[in-house]
Design a protein around this nucleic acid. Structure first.
Lengths: 259, 259
DNA sequence: CGCCCTGTTGAATCTGGTCAAACTAAGTGG
DNA sequence: CCACTTAGTTTGACCAGATTCAACAGGGCG
């Protein structure tokens, strides 16, 4: 039935080789038989342009999505349209899992740039999780990670002032770059000040002001979207990272902000 | 091995009949064979007094906990000891799931009152999830729910002012009571103002002030910890609930605040 | 070249935090 | 039973940080 779906969509040529689900599961001990199985479940591919919506709040839960390339932001909103960005998502990550409970998407997903997505129907997803044990446990871990990420963000939103938020944000980027073997002290912020502000719960003007203050104090050098961190120690002192700084890396699943 | 653990702990008499895991899973289609299986996995029971710690941030992930009775708050913290309460948890809920990914607890759990807990070792938990399909999918749904809850809280913390936060909080309690067939307009707040403030990311003085303001405006009547909601409509208007108000109930897994 | 978008800066304003004090209820011990 | 302590709550005064509004600078692009 899922194979049929693949054929219907005219996307038979699409293997799962480069899709997020594959990337996600392979390092976790899936053997090739499993990945062949994966292929069966991927329904079709979608290509989104910047600003296009993947799913909306309240919409029925139809698919789980895996990002192949590009990046996506998710956000929730109030009655009167105020948005809170809850995450930026990159290749290898899954979207829509938080709809499993209520069978409705509870946040909105929008492409930040041209983005390629694998679609897995909700039914197929359940089947997949049931039939492939290694995928199954991997799902739990992924959701566990998302919960942890959100908790870090709540701490930031609830208890940190604007300076601390910015410092935390910069350090989190720095660490993620270090993990990917990019420079931890020099990179591009490829999102707008307003995105940063929204994510951190402060006005974009405040973001600007604090960046310039940090610069005046010599901790950073920033020019448009390129930034150099001159004093990680001082930034750390300001950021006031969570207790288990070693274990709990960061609440920021962001896109690759360097190049 | 898990059976052995049960016997070692001297808690053989404890069946899973009243433990959270049982309550959780039974309505979801577990048959009695499955629940017998469940019994095998519950290692032992713990009894916590008010203020006692169930697990700490950074501690190794050893167990998943199910609340039998009482209530527990979880929180994360910064370097310098500021806390952010991330949830209040009640019977039937599981604790510790967000440690699945990193194998360390990333928040701290403390009993709010005398609380009875079932303990399931991490290894047994994995086995349980692997062997009992109905439990497995249930886990995914639980974590999905927690993510949704956290997203609502992030929206509140990032984009709402103090009045809106309080109104949201009161309405969420009201709805939960309605679900349990308690009065949605009259109940006890059995947590301190400071707990409320911490949870909502505002000072306890601000909580007090806004409660009195709401009272002056006739929307509520409050006396110590007993509260009457006189005007749900006006509260809703202030709260500015998320778009899909129907689908997305509330970000507040709180304890029974009425009696 | 001129327009638009993003980002920066300044000034006024205001929300909410902090500090301090008073008050209440509930214990606690003599 | 009463004096005393303690924790929780409320209230006022003051102030800092952040928002809002507005103007402006500069780069990228048609």
């Amino acid at each position: 039935m899922s194979r049929q779906a693949v054929q219907e969509s005219g996307c038979v040529e699409i293997s799962c080789q480069n899709c997020g689900l594959y990337q996600l599961c392979l390092p976790m001990g899936l053997d090739s038989a499993d990945t062949t199985l994966l292929d069966r479940y991927v329904k079709r591919k979608r290509l989104l342009k910047r600003g296009e919506v993947l799913y909306r709040i309240g919409e029925k839960f139809t698919c789980v999505y895996a990002i192949r390339s590009g990046s996506v932001k998710t956000y929730v909103s109030t009655d009167d349209g105020r948005l809170q960005i809850t995450g930026f998502h990159v290749p290898g990550e899954l979207l829509g899992l938080s709809a499993l409970d209520e069978k409705r998407y509870n946040c909105e997903a929008v492409a930040l740039e041209t983005t390629s997505i694998c679609e897995i129907s909700a039914g197929c997803f359940e089947e997949l999780v049931r039939e492939v044990p290694s995928v199954h446990y991997q799902m739990l871990r992924m959701m566990s990670r998302e919960i942890r990420h959100n908790q870090g963000l709540m701490l930031l939103l609830g208890r940190k002032n604007a300076e601390e938020r910015l410092a935390t944000f910069l350090l989190s980027l720095s660490r993620r770059f270090a993990l990917r073997n990019y420079s931890p002290t020099q990179f591009n912020l490829n999102m707008s000040r307003s995105d940063i502000g929204n994510y951190l719960g402060i006005a974009e003007e405040t973001v600007s002001r604090i960046f310039t203050r940090f610069q005046e104090e010599g901790m950073i050098a920033i020019e448009r979207r390129h930034i150099i961190l001159n004093d990680l120690k001082r930034l750390s002192a300001i950021a006031r990272e969570p207790y288990s700084a070693t274990a709990q890396v960061i609440p920021l699943p962001l896109t690759q902000y360097s190049r």
